[in-house]
Amino acid sequence: MPDSPLLEVRDLQVHFPIRKGVLQRARGVVRAVDGVSFAIGRGETLGLVGESGCGKSTTGLALMGLTPATGGIVRIDGMAPQRLRGAAMRAWRRRMQIVFQDPFSSLNPRQRVADILRAPLDIHRIGTPAERRERVADLMARVGLRPDQAGNYPHEFSGGQRQRIGIARALALRPDLIICDEPVSALDVSVQAQILNLLSDLQEEYGLSFLMISHDLGVVEHVSHRVAVMYLGRIVEIADKARLFEAPGHPYTELLLRSAPVMDPRRRRRFSAQANEIGAAGAAPGGCAFAPRCPLATDLCRTTTPALTPRDPRQSVACHHR
């Protein structure tokens, strides 16, 4: 990876107020994303993995400005959007795009595919009308849709084809980085493989970077160069893929790996029915959020939040005992 990262995220926070009572006063705060920092290089895929409610999707939305961040800095090639205006701001925004999980709800049912794909070009005033038409045709061909389908509506497509439309839309503005928020979780296994292959082809062809948000360890392990593990709003471990899967540093990463079923009936693990439940983000006490479920937890863990600390250049872990 080159020295200066393409995307740099420092101390990103997304806090939502909890409103209660008749006057809807803020009575507390949900720290959905609580100080998340990472970087992604050119042509690199960073996997962001964690369970529901850990804040991984909110992280993606905040990077896109689709949910307001309450703190932190996002830089692309060293540039933060705060001081940008007008055309410079639009140019900044073009560089990062998103593909959503649900190809059913993320496409306007009343727009034809051609209109869906042309919208980003119209908004950013790219090319002449003829050039835009040509670009739409190119995009459709690139993601494996037939040109005669341009006049069809989303409901006329299967789930996998709809996800191809979503990917084509993200590609329309020639971004450097695409945030993929669970791009294959709604799809059947055979179709999922088609979409993952398409994404890897696109990465090779255009040198794209991906932030691959997923709960599926198999998907993350397949596509990522590096992997970040989130738990209740924080990154608890970030490491090279091989290191993370071979020598996980954080007890939560270990739990995740131990829980994932393996495609080999000769290497079965004995799953246990322990009743440890995931904590709620609103009720996270001081200290390490994983402490209530952690076999290593001590008093220190319950009072002091461990910082994400590098063990070596390949792996950083947020744990007092590792």
Binding site: E51, P261, S272
Partner: peptide, 10 residues
């Protein structure tokens, strides 16, 4: 989630 899945299968 995968950790809950493991518990339910167990």
């Amino acid at each position: 989630d995968v950790t809950i899945q493991a518990q339910i299968l167990g």
